[in-house]
Protein backbone atom coordinates (compact mmCIF):
# COMPACT_ATOMS: atom_id res chain seq x y z
CA UNK A 1 0.00 0.00 0.00
CA UNK A 2 1.17 3.46 -0.82
CA UNK A 3 0.25 6.63 0.96
CA UNK A 4 1.33 10.00 -0.26
CA UNK A 5 2.73 12.56 2.13
CA UNK A 6 -0.30 14.73 1.46
CA UNK A 7 -2.68 11.97 2.52
CA UNK A 8 -0.59 11.30 5.56
CA UNK A 9 -0.81 14.92 6.72
CA UNK A 10 -4.53 15.09 5.98
CA UNK A 11 -5.28 11.94 7.97
CA UNK A 12 -3.06 13.03 10.79
CA UNK A 13 -4.52 16.52 11.02
CA UNK A 14 -8.04 15.11 10.97
CA UNK A 15 -7.16 12.74 13.77
CA UNK A 16 -5.65 15.46 15.92
CA UNK A 17 -8.64 17.75 15.38
CA UNK A 18 -11.02 14.94 16.26
CA UNK A 19 -9.00 14.28 19.36
CA UNK A 20 -9.15 17.87 20.51
CA UNK A 21 -12.92 17.91 20.10
CA UNK A 22 -13.36 14.56 21.85
CA UNK A 23 -11.01 15.63 24.59
CA UNK A 24 -12.86 18.84 25.40
CA UNK A 25 -16.33 17.36 25.01
CA UNK A 26 -16.90 16.61 28.72
CA UNK A 27 -15.89 20.14 29.68
CA UNK A 28 -18.18 21.64 27.06
CA UNK A 29 -21.10 19.51 28.21
CA UNK A 30 -20.39 20.50 31.77
CA UNK A 31 -20.35 24.19 30.99
CA UNK A 32 -23.63 23.87 29.09
CA UNK A 33 -25.24 21.97 31.93
CA UNK A 34 -24.19 24.21 34.82
CA UNK A 35 -23.82 27.87 34.08
CA UNK A 36 -22.36 30.01 36.85
CA UNK A 37 -20.12 29.18 39.77
CA UNK A 38 -21.81 25.98 40.86
CA UNK A 39 -18.54 24.44 42.02
CA UNK A 40 -18.11 26.93 44.84
CA UNK A 41 -19.30 25.57 48.17
CA UNK A 42 -22.09 27.54 49.78
CA UNK A 43 -20.89 29.57 52.71
CA UNK A 44 -22.16 32.36 54.92
CA UNK A 45 -19.57 34.80 53.65
CA UNK A 46 -18.64 34.12 50.06
CA UNK A 47 -15.65 36.00 48.79
CA UNK A 48 -16.94 37.59 45.62
CA UNK A 49 -14.05 39.72 44.43
CA UNK A 50 -10.84 38.57 46.01
CA UNK A 51 -8.04 41.10 46.27
CA UNK A 52 -5.19 38.67 46.32
CA UNK A 53 -2.50 41.02 45.11
CA UNK A 54 -3.15 43.46 47.95
CA UNK A 55 -1.90 41.14 50.70
CA UNK A 56 1.20 39.20 51.46
CA UNK A 57 0.77 37.24 54.63
CA UNK A 58 3.36 36.62 57.33
CA UNK A 59 3.50 34.65 60.56
CA UNK A 60 5.47 34.96 63.81
CA UNK A 61 6.01 32.03 66.15
CA UNK A 62 7.39 33.09 69.52
CA UNK A 63 9.22 30.29 71.30
CA UNK A 64 9.73 32.50 74.34
CA UNK A 65 6.01 32.83 74.86
CA UNK A 66 4.66 29.44 73.87
CA UNK A 67 3.40 27.46 76.87
CA UNK A 68 2.78 24.20 75.01
CA UNK A 69 -0.92 24.01 75.80
CA UNK A 70 -1.64 22.54 72.36
CA UNK A 71 -4.91 24.41 71.98
CA UNK A 72 -3.73 25.56 68.57
CA UNK A 73 -3.50 21.94 67.42
CA UNK A 74 -7.03 21.25 68.65
CA UNK A 75 -8.41 24.39 67.03
CA UNK A 76 -6.67 23.63 63.75
CA UNK A 77 -8.02 20.08 63.64
CA UNK A 78 -11.55 21.28 64.31
CA UNK A 79 -11.49 24.28 62.02
CA UNK A 80 -10.03 22.38 59.08
CA UNK A 81 -11.47 18.92 59.70
CA UNK A 82 -7.98 17.48 59.98
CA UNK A 83 -8.04 13.79 61.00
CA UNK A 84 -7.74 13.53 64.78
CA UNK A 85 -4.93 10.94 64.73
CA UNK A 86 -1.42 12.03 65.55
CA UNK A 87 0.02 11.32 62.07
CA UNK A 88 -2.05 14.02 60.39
CA UNK A 89 -1.26 17.57 61.40
CA UNK A 90 -1.33 20.96 59.82
CA UNK A 91 0.27 22.34 62.94
CA UNK A 92 1.96 20.82 65.96
CA UNK A 93 4.02 21.78 69.01
CA UNK A 94 7.46 20.40 69.85
CA UNK A 95 9.14 20.53 73.24
CA UNK A 96 12.88 21.00 73.38
CA UNK A 97 14.84 20.06 76.49
CA UNK A 98 18.52 20.93 76.49
CA UNK A 99 20.53 19.43 79.31
CA UNK A 100 23.63 20.83 80.97
CA UNK A 101 25.61 18.21 79.03
CA UNK A 102 24.46 19.90 75.83
CA UNK A 103 22.22 17.03 74.81
CA UNK A 104 19.02 18.08 73.03
CA UNK A 105 15.87 16.05 73.58
CA UNK A 106 12.71 16.65 71.60
CA UNK A 107 9.22 15.28 71.95
CA UNK A 108 5.75 16.02 70.66
CA UNK A 109 3.27 13.61 72.27
CA UNK A 110 0.23 13.28 69.97
CA UNK A 111 1.68 16.25 68.08
CA UNK A 112 0.97 18.37 71.19
CA UNK A 113 -2.77 17.95 70.67
CA UNK A 114 -3.38 17.04 74.33
CA UNK A 115 -0.78 19.41 75.72
CA UNK A 116 2.30 18.34 77.63
CA UNK A 117 0.94 18.33 81.20
CA UNK A 118 0.49 14.57 81.28
CA UNK A 119 3.16 13.57 78.78
CA UNK A 120 5.06 10.42 79.69
CA UNK A 121 8.40 12.17 79.16
CA UNK A 122 7.74 14.53 82.09
CA UNK A 123 8.97 12.00 84.64
CA UNK A 124 12.02 11.11 82.52
CA UNK A 125 12.93 14.76 82.29
CA UNK A 126 12.60 15.15 86.07
CA UNK A 127 15.96 13.52 86.71
CA UNK A 128 17.85 15.52 84.11
CA UNK A 129 19.94 18.56 84.76
CA UNK A 130 18.08 20.88 82.44
CA UNK A 131 19.90 23.88 81.04
CA UNK A 132 16.87 25.20 79.26
CA UNK A 133 13.61 24.04 77.86
CA UNK A 134 11.04 25.59 75.56
CA UNK A 135 8.22 24.89 73.15
CA UNK A 136 8.35 25.40 69.38
CA UNK A 137 5.09 25.71 67.44
CA UNK A 138 5.34 24.31 63.92
CA UNK A 139 3.20 24.79 60.84
CA UNK A 140 3.62 25.22 57.10
CA UNK A 141 6.16 27.95 56.42
CA UNK A 142 4.41 28.99 53.18
CA UNK A 143 7.87 29.30 51.66
CA UNK A 144 8.61 31.96 49.09
CA UNK A 145 10.50 29.25 47.19
CA UNK A 146 8.41 26.20 48.01
CA UNK A 147 10.12 22.91 47.06
CA UNK A 148 6.76 21.14 47.27
CA UNK A 149 5.37 23.25 44.43
CA UNK A 150 8.44 22.63 42.29
CA UNK A 151 8.15 18.86 42.48
CA UNK A 152 4.39 18.39 41.99
CA UNK A 153 4.20 16.48 38.70
CA UNK A 154 0.73 17.74 37.78
CA UNK A 155 0.84 21.26 39.19
CA UNK A 156 -1.86 20.47 41.75
CA UNK A 157 -0.08 22.39 44.46
CA UNK A 158 0.63 26.03 43.82
CA UNK A 159 1.33 29.37 45.46
CA UNK A 160 -1.46 31.93 45.56
CA UNK A 161 -0.82 35.56 44.72
CA UNK A 162 -0.93 36.45 48.41
CA UNK A 163 1.79 33.92 49.14
CA UNK A 164 -0.02 30.86 50.52
CA UNK A 165 0.73 27.36 49.22
CA UNK A 166 -2.48 25.46 48.51
CA UNK A 167 -3.31 22.02 47.12
CA UNK A 168 -5.99 21.50 44.50
CA UNK A 169 -7.30 18.30 46.01
CA UNK A 170 -9.50 17.59 43.02
CA UNK A 171 -6.40 17.46 40.87
CA UNK A 172 -3.82 15.87 43.19
CA UNK A 173 -2.89 12.35 42.05
CA UNK A 174 -1.53 11.31 45.45
CA UNK A 175 2.07 10.61 44.40
CA UNK A 176 3.36 12.22 47.62
CA UNK A 177 6.47 13.64 46.00
CA UNK A 178 5.65 16.92 47.74
CA UNK A 179 5.56 15.15 51.11
CA UNK A 180 9.11 13.97 50.43
CA UNK A 181 10.20 17.39 49.21
CA UNK A 182 8.94 19.40 52.21
CA UNK A 183 11.90 19.85 54.56
CA UNK A 184 9.59 20.66 57.45
CA UNK A 185 7.28 17.64 57.48
CA UNK A 186 4.29 19.91 56.99
CA UNK A 187 2.40 17.71 54.51
CA UNK A 188 0.52 14.46 54.81
CA UNK A 189 -1.80 12.32 52.73
CA UNK A 190 -5.42 12.20 53.85
CA UNK A 191 -6.40 8.67 54.92
CA UNK A 192 -9.39 6.82 53.48
CA UNK A 193 -11.50 7.68 56.51
CA UNK A 194 -10.84 11.43 56.31
CA UNK A 195 -13.87 13.68 56.02
CA UNK A 196 -12.56 16.99 54.86
CA UNK A 197 -14.27 20.03 53.40
CA UNK A 198 -13.56 18.97 49.83
CA UNK A 199 -14.57 15.38 50.46
CA UNK A 200 -11.36 14.08 48.91
CA UNK A 201 -9.32 11.23 50.36
CA UNK A 202 -5.89 9.83 49.46
CA UNK A 203 -4.74 13.26 48.33
CA UNK A 204 -2.24 15.53 50.01
CA UNK A 205 -3.33 18.07 52.60
CA UNK A 206 -1.46 20.83 54.36
CA UNK A 207 -1.75 24.00 56.40
CA UNK A 208 -3.37 26.88 54.48
CA UNK A 209 -2.93 29.48 57.24
CA UNK A 210 -6.72 29.07 57.38
CA UNK A 211 -7.08 30.60 53.94
CA UNK A 212 -10.87 30.80 54.31
CA UNK A 213 -10.49 32.79 57.54
CA UNK A 214 -7.80 35.23 56.49
CA UNK A 215 -9.70 36.04 53.31
CA UNK A 216 -12.64 37.07 55.48
CA UNK A 217 -10.55 39.24 57.78
CA UNK A 218 -10.29 36.70 60.60
CA UNK A 219 -7.15 35.25 62.13
CA UNK A 220 -6.07 31.67 61.50
CA UNK A 221 -7.71 29.39 64.08
CA UNK A 222 -4.40 28.62 65.84
CA UNK A 223 -3.66 32.33 66.21
CA UNK A 224 -7.22 33.01 67.38
CA UNK A 225 -6.99 30.55 70.27
CA UNK A 226 -3.36 31.07 71.31
CA UNK A 227 -3.65 32.30 74.93
CA UNK A 228 -0.20 33.90 75.18
CA UNK A 229 0.34 35.56 71.81
CA UNK A 230 2.97 33.05 70.77
CA UNK A 231 1.41 32.95 67.31
CA UNK A 232 1.02 36.24 65.46
CA UNK A 233 -0.42 36.62 62.00
CA UNK A 234 -0.63 39.62 59.73
CA UNK A 235 -0.24 41.28 56.39
CA UNK A 236 3.36 42.08 55.52
CA UNK A 237 2.16 44.78 53.13
CA UNK A 238 0.56 46.67 56.06
CA UNK A 239 3.21 48.63 58.01
CA UNK A 240 0.93 48.62 61.07
CA UNK A 241 0.35 44.86 61.12
CA UNK A 242 1.50 43.06 64.28
CA UNK A 243 3.87 40.94 62.23
CA UNK A 244 5.64 43.96 60.82
CA UNK A 245 5.81 45.43 64.33
CA UNK A 246 7.51 42.35 65.77
CA UNK A 247 9.85 42.11 62.78
CA UNK A 248 10.93 45.69 63.59
CA UNK A 249 11.43 45.02 67.28
CA UNK A 250 12.87 41.53 67.47
CA UNK A 251 15.57 39.50 65.84
CA UNK A 252 14.01 36.54 64.14
CA UNK A 253 15.13 33.34 62.48
CA UNK A 254 13.60 30.85 60.08
CA UNK A 255 13.77 27.06 59.99
CA UNK A 256 16.49 25.48 57.80
CA UNK A 257 17.48 28.74 56.09
CA UNK A 258 20.35 26.95 54.33
CA UNK A 259 17.87 25.16 52.05
CA UNK A 260 16.91 28.44 50.42
CA UNK A 261 13.17 27.92 50.80
CA UNK A 262 12.64 31.43 52.23
CA UNK A 263 10.10 30.51 54.90
CA UNK A 264 7.53 33.07 56.00
CA UNK A 265 7.11 31.80 59.55
CA UNK A 266 9.57 33.85 61.59
CA UNK A 267 10.73 32.43 64.91
CA UNK A 268 11.43 34.63 67.92
CA UNK A 269 13.80 33.19 70.54
CA UNK A 270 15.50 30.71 68.28
CA UNK A 271 17.92 28.08 69.54
CA UNK A 272 20.58 26.04 67.78
CA UNK A 273 19.33 22.59 66.94
CA UNK A 274 15.75 23.56 66.15
CA UNK A 275 15.01 22.25 62.67
Amino acid sequence: MKISRRDFIKTGAGGVLGGVVAYSLPSILRILAQPGNAELPVSAAVIGEPQWEKHHWGFIADTEKCIGCGRCVVACKQENKVPWDEEYNRTWVERYVITEDGETLVDSPNAGRDGFAEATKNSEYQNLEIRKSFFVPKLCNQCEQPPCVTVCPVGATYRTKDGVVLVNQEHCIGCRYCVQACPYGARYMLPDAAQTHFGQVRVVDKCTWCYHRIQKGLLPACVEVCPVGARVFGDMRDPESPVRKILREKRVYVLKPDLGTEPKVYYVGFEKGVH
Partner: peptide, 19 residues
Protein backbone atom coordinates in the same frame (compact mmCIF):
# COMPACT_ATOMS: atom_id res chain seq x y z
CA UNK B 1 -0.92 23.80 34.74
CA UNK B 2 -1.52 26.31 36.23
CA UNK B 3 -4.44 27.74 34.28
CA UNK B 4 -7.17 26.87 36.74
CA UNK B 5 -5.62 27.69 40.10
CA UNK B 6 -7.83 30.69 40.72
CA UNK B 7 -10.98 28.58 40.81
CA UNK B 8 -9.36 26.41 43.42
CA UNK B 9 -8.06 29.36 45.42
CA UNK B 10 -11.58 30.73 45.53
CA UNK B 11 -12.89 27.35 46.67
CA UNK B 12 -10.39 27.33 49.53
CA UNK B 13 -11.24 30.94 50.40
CA UNK B 14 -14.91 30.07 50.67
CA UNK B 15 -14.71 27.07 52.96
CA UNK B 16 -17.06 27.33 55.94
CA UNK B 17 -15.82 28.57 59.31
CA UNK B 18 -15.91 26.59 62.55
CA UNK B 19 -14.32 29.08 64.90
Amino acid sequence: HPRKTETNTLAWANLPLQY
